[in-house]
């Protein structure tokens, strides 16, 4: 709690000068009702938003690094599985991809989805029109993995019993393991703390609050009453069913149109990025040490591929 309190006191002063960048509050009045909102959403459907990059992304594996890790993991799992008397192909589906070129397919699929796609809840007008606030269906790779293998295969792949790390998947992890697990955990915790503090800091920031107010006014004009976007996303009315109903879709379509017309995500993400940068800088040594450990893991994966 101390860290967040500090942020809330210190950062608004530092950030106050930056102004209200992407907000276009004069656009709000354009969205007069849900029909207009839907039309507006349709107009932006073809526009491909630039992929959002946040400062903390630097402290996670990039897509290119994930490809290297995937190739190393796939090779290690298949070798191990074969050495234990199984046909290497029977290792499919691997839990990071589907049968046949598993790792490559998996990474392609991951590439297709912007990692921050749902950070500010639904933001794509086509997704809103089809799924409302519900996430589009994706293959549950874990369920598929567990259900597609026999018990003998699972024992070879995951391990002999709860908590045993003698499975081929664990062996594959070892290929890229770094010696210093404790430091790695500390780094993960650091990332997690900064992520939460920056998220809450941005939400309380006057610029984001103003952007929420503009979004809320836009939604009200379309007939929907919410103070903040996540209230709309988390509305209990949507979540008692597995798929979106008509009301949910209409609300989500208006939501995305209002996010677009008020420039909400541009403001929100820029403010969140500022908080993240500030918090990273306050503990740069810890973040550098963590990044070095991520680099080590990728280096080990590259070495294993040679």
């Amino acid at each position: 709690m101390t860290a967040r309190t500090t942020v809330l006191i210190v950062l608004p002063l530092a950030l106050a000068v930056a102004g209200c960048g992407g907000a276009r509050s004069d656009d709000v009045a354009v969205v007069a009702d849900s029909v207009t909102a839907a039309r507006s959403a349709g107009q932006v459907a073809d526009r491909q938003p630039a992929e959002l990059v946040l400062p903390l992304d630097e402290y996670a594996f990039s897509e290119a690094e994930d490809e290297v890790l995937a190739a190393a993991a796939e090779a290690a799992v298949r070798d191990c599985f074969e050495a234990r008397g199984f046909d290497a192909a029977d290792a499919d589906p691997l839990p990071f991809g589907s049968a046949g070129g598993a790792a490559a397919d998996a990474v392609d699929a991951a590439d297709a989805a912007d990692k921050h796609e749902r950070r500010y809840a639904v933001a794509d007008p086509e997704v809103a029109a089809r799924h409302g606030y519900h996430p589009p269906d994706t293959t549950d790779v874990r369920q598929e993995f567990y259900e597609s293998h026999t018990e003998a295969e699972l024992t070879a792949l995951v391990g002999t019993q709860d908590g045993a790390d003698d499975g081929c998947l664990h062996e594959a992890d070892e290929v890229t393991a770094v010696g210093n697990e404790a430091t790695l955990r500390e780094g993960e915790l650091l990332v997690s703390e900064v992520q939460a503090d920056a998220w809450h800091g941005a939400m309380a920031d006057p610029r984001v609050q103003d952007a929420f107010a503009a979004w809320s006014a836009c939604m009200a004009a379309a007939g929907y009453r919410y103070d903040a976007p996540m209230e709309a996303n988390d509305d209990p009315a949507w979540w008692s069913t597995d798929v979106a109903g008509a009301d949910e879709i209409a609300t989500a379509v208006a939501d995305v149109a209002c996010k677009d017309s008020t420039g909400l995500i541009a403001v929100w993400s820029a403010v969140e990025a500022e908080y993240q940068s500030e918090l990273i800088a306050q503990n740069q040594d810890g973040f550098d040490a963590y990044r070095a450990l991520l680099d080590d893991q990728v280096a080990h994966a590259r070495a294993a591929a040679r």
Binding site: P95, R118, A121, V158, L169, H170, S192, D234
Partner: peptide, 18 residues
């Protein structure tokens, strides 16, 4: 024994996660 659980602040896997 193998998979990481990712817990999201918001419904539908939205918002940041731990």
């Amino acid at each position: 024994g193998y998979f990481t659980a990712r817990i999201y602040f918001n419904s539908g896997y939205a918002g940041p996660a731990d």
